[in-house]
């Protein structure tokens, strides 16, 4: 089991992750990328390994309501760049980080374009939703520009100061 959290706190997960050969449920379903071709289902989501090429998925964006990116470990940061690329390529649907990411990464995840995190229960037991909300509450400012989601840009704030 797992816990789903977005910037507002814990949320219900309407999505069903469909294993390789299982039949599709009626509601929102997340499938593996190799099952996408010719699949007629809505709402449709896909779960990507963190070795996936975001650009290869661009033609499918319009029928994907959710993309979930696998984080095999919190310190494997490839998913951050995949998310960023998906957003730059024009994906506007929901973006999920799935795996044992930690609360201290929440601001970075949001800034790279993620909307929500799906964490295993054992981790959620140690790092409940309050930790995640506290993490973004104290995140403060960031130096980078061109990213929204959690921290305001110091460089943009300085530009505003300069008038």
């Amino acid at each position: 089991m797992s816990l789903l959290i977005d910037r507002g706190g814990p949320i219900a997960d309407p999505w069903v992750r469909v294993q390789r050969d299982e039949p599709l449920p009626d509601g929102p379903a997340i499938v593996d990328p190799d099952r996408l071709a010719g699949l007629d289902h809505a709402p449709l989501g896909v779960h990507l390994p963190n070795t996936a090429d975001a650009a290869a998925l661009a033609s499918e964006f319009s029928r994907l309501a959710l993309i979930s990116i696998d984080f095999p470990a919190f310190n494997d940061g490839r998913g951050f760049s995949i998310a960023r690329r998906l957003r730059e390529l024009g994906y506007t649907g929901r973006l999920r980080a799935a795996g044992p990411v930690i609360a201290d990464q929440f601001a970075y995840l949001l800034e790279c374009g993620f909307d929500e995190v799906e964490i295993p229960d054992a981790l959620a037991a140690r790092q409940p939703a309050e930790h995640w909300l506290a993490a973004i509450a104290r995140a403060g400012h960031a130096y980078q520009r061109g990213r929204t989601g959690a921290r305001a840009s110091i460089l943009d704030a300085r530009s505003a100061d300069h008038g």
Binding site: F74, D76, G77, F80, Q105, E111, A142, Q144, I154
Partner: peptide, 13 residues
Amino acid sequence: QWSSLHPEFTFLG
């Protein structure tokens, strides 16, 4: 400044 807590590059290989 740019590299400090860069959201994308804080968990590199």
